[in-house]
Design a protein around this nucleic acid. Structure first.
Lengths: 334, 334
DNA sequence: ATGAAAGCGCTAACAA
DNA sequence: TTGTTAGCGCTTTCAT
């Protein structure tokens, strides 16, 4: 039982090979009778069009390259799963490229992406340089950055409203009556980390406060170390805003199990993402939600729109979302 | 800057198109001088061979289909990341197929897998029927089941030594002096779940004990419900072996935060997998390790070996690993 | 070792 | 609507 070609189907159906092709090509013309005969023969033989051959002609592979760095932050596996499912429903599939955040690696990945003739690219939280992403656009391949923005570049991106999110957190903490507020920020090399920090600090400054800030690099160990530094300082904070949930869990672990402090009575903690784990009783973390579902939907829409019509301009989508108050904060003073 | 073909490189290098092809085909013959000229021209033009065209000729796409169901169990994202990285180093990439565990979906996925002419397939924890997996083998596509075995079928699989693992857990719990031991099993429809259970029960039976067993379906909510049932029964257990870490976290949450019990003094808990979260202080879970690294390595080896030489027989690999004692058990009586 | 030529399986432009 | 023809970009005989 080897490969069945369109030619064999054609013979069996008593039509030309191109007739078979047309029956299987969306938006091609074939009479009902022909289509019937062809489909019949095709199912009998178990024929399915060869994607590779089709891709070579049309230039469309129906493959989307997903560039991803680390999957230890629960937010990304979830996104990957939803992304894959949503694209699959549209007839696309995800080809995974893991890129350690090093300079040379990105370069290499970019080439491989082009080799496979992917129809589009989604970068998830990976530090693609402007240059690299621009080159994809130059090569005519639409790129959407998921959970990352890019300053002046003409590249589509989908993020949550991080600036606003930071502000929301600041105002909430203020409303809770906190006096000494600190921030363990997301990696300052990422727009996401920077925006959350900016929104947070601006709102705090407006209230006449200046938070102490340490870059947590989106990393557990770094965040844990930052927590120690913060709490052992001369003026330890009574609230910490952490750049994402993944780090916030490390902060909570350190606070509770290493420093023996109580949350929220000694220190309040707020994260960002609202990954499933944040809702589990062991952490019960107050956090800014990132609506994965809507972000995924927007990403797929944006990408497919650009694939179908390359003249569509790049769009930068920001999705607003609520703060989810749970047990690591005391709640606003009423 | 559109597509560069081998022909354009050939012209520039002053050689034939086939010469260019040979230079880029591993194990083809070309003189040093020709190779030099070709490489020169290629880099100048930014040429890279077109994978699609190559795939069509050789029948090798250098794409591995990964079929996966859910990614909420931390074990799988980790595996996916390592798998992707290991394969990438060998020049392969992963095309993701998400399959809800329904019957019809698997059928559909299987077809798409064939459409893309994947060189091999890895199924991760997804309930492929014997029939389906056999059809892939029939179609000449090597399949490796990751973290699942299959009874009599001639299909490669890589698992940890689940039978032995179950036994190890039982003996450990016995050594800790537990009297009433229960088991919230992994999905009984999976070899992994069954083997752990069998190894566990056999060892317990040998000691004259018969554990109460509830199928946890590898699901958080089901496991939580099972925990309630167990603890509210006439003879609540003093130790619970849970079929994987993902469920064990739900069990711990329920025990501590809902039933107000202390672990391990009221009940001891042991999981299976040793995902990163198990080591975090909030859970600090005693668990059977599954050595992801070695499992991934074995999977990649097995798959690539069969791709390179299809006559290689299927192999069933079981990897032994240790119990990691942490804070949810009291430790053996000395 | 190299070039010419024959396709891989398909879609698309062209006639009929 | 349909069949015929020409490639997509490459690998692989087959001669030389």
């Amino acid at each position: 039982m080897s490969k069945i070609t369109s030619l064999q189907v054609a013979k069996r159906a008593g039509v030309s090979q191109s007739a078979v092709s047309r029956v299987f090509t969306p938006g091609a013309s074939a009479s009902a009778r022909t289509a019937e005969k062809v489909r019949q023969a095709a199912t009998e033989l178990g024929y399915r069009p060869n994607m590779m051959a089709r891709a070579m002609i049309t230039g469309k592979s129906r493959i989307i390259g997903l560039v991803v760095a680390y999957l230890d932050n629960q937010f990304y596996p979830l996104a990957l799963q939803l992304l894959s499912k949503a694209l699959q429903e549209k007839g696309y599939h995800i080809l995974v490229f893991t890129a350690s955040n090093s300079q040379g690696a990105a370069e290499e990945v970019m080439q491989e992406l082009l080799d496979y003739q992917v129809d589009g690219i989604i970068t998830a939280s990976v530090g693609m340089t402007n240059d690299l992403t621009m080159r994809c656009t130059a090569a005519g391949i639409p790129v959407v950055m998921f959970n990352r923005g890019q300053e002046g570049a003409d590249i589509s991106s989908v993020t949550s409203a991080n600036l606003l999110g930071g502000k929301t957190v600041a105002e909430y903490l203020l409303a809770c009556g906190h006096q000494t507020i600190a921030h363990i920020s997301g990696w300052s090399g990422s727009s996401t980390g920077r925006d959350r920090q900016t929104g947070f600090c601006d709102a705090l400054n407006a209230a006449g406060k200046a938070p102490q800030i340490i870059d947590g690099m989106f990393d557990r160990d770094t965040a844990a170390a930052a927590t120690r530094t913060l709490m052992e300082s001369a003026t330890p904070p009574d609230a910490i805003f952490v750049g994402n949930d993944h780090m916030a869990f490390a902060v909570l672990d350190t606070l509770r199990h290493e420093l023996g402090l109580r949350v929220p009575s000694d220190v309040a903690v707020i994260g960002y993402d609202d990954v499933p784990l944040a809702a589990w009783p062991a952490y019960n973390l107050t956090t800014m939600r990132q609506p994965v579902n809507r972000m995924v939907q927007a990403t797929v829409d944006t990408l497919l729109t650009r694939i179908e019509d390359p003249t569509t301009p790049a769009r930068r989508i920001e999705i607003e979302s609520p703060l989810i108050a749970r047990g690591t904060t005391k709640g606003p003073i009423t």
